[in-house]
Simulated scan of single mutants.
Amino acid sequence: MKNKRVEYQDWGLIDYKEAWDKQENLFSASVQLKTQLRNKQLAVAAGQEPEDDILTPNYLVFCEHPHVYTLGKSGKADHLLLDEAGLKEKNAVYYPINRGGDITYHGPGQLVAYPILDLDNFFTDIHLYLRTLEEAVINTLAHYGITAGRYPGYTGVWLDADNEHARKICAMGVRCSRWVTMHGLALNVNANLDYFKNIVPCGIEDKAVASLNQELGRDVDLNEVKKILKQEISVLFGMEIFG
Rank of each mutant, 00 (worst) to 15 (best):
A46Y: 03
Y59K: 09
Q110R: 03
L81I: 05
G101H: 03
P115G: 12
G100I: 04
A92W: 06
L87V: 04
D53Q: 04
C63T: 14
A113V: 15
A92K: 07
Y95P: 03
N58A: 08
P108F: 05
V93P: 04
P108G: 09
P66E: 08
Y95L: 03
D120W: 06
L55G: 00
V112S: 00
N121G: 13
A85Q: 12
E51F: 04
L111V: 12
L71V: 11
L60N: 04
S74N: 14
Q110I: 03
V93R: 14
I126F: 12
N121Y: 08
E89H: 12
A43M: 15
D102H: 09
V112D: 03
K76A: 10
G72L: 00
G72Q: 01
N121H: 05
Y69K: 02
N121C: 07
T124I: 06
H79E: 14
G75Y: 12
C63R: 15
G109S: 08
V44R: 03
F122P: 03
L71W: 09
L71M: 14
A92Q: 06
D125A: 08
N58H: 11
Y69A: 06
G107F: 04
D78R: 11
E64M: 10
D83N: 12
Y69Q: 06
V68R: 07
E51L: 09
D78Q: 15
A77L: 10
Y94N: 04
H67K: 14
L80Y: 01
A77G: 01
D83S: 02
I54K: 04
V93C: 11
F122C: 01
T124G: 01
G100T: 02
H67C: 07
I97H: 12
E51D: 10
K73T: 14
I116E: 00
V61W: 15
E64S: 06
Y94T: 04
L82P: 08
T124S: 08
V93F: 05
I116V: 15
L81R: 11
D120A: 05
A46W: 02
E84S: 13
V93K: 15
E49P: 02
G101Y: 10
L80P: 01
H79D: 15
K76N: 13
A43Q: 14
F62R: 08
D53E: 12
G72N: 01
I116Q: 02
A45R: 13
L117N: 13
D125R: 07
G47P: 05
F123E: 11
N91S: 14
T104C: 07
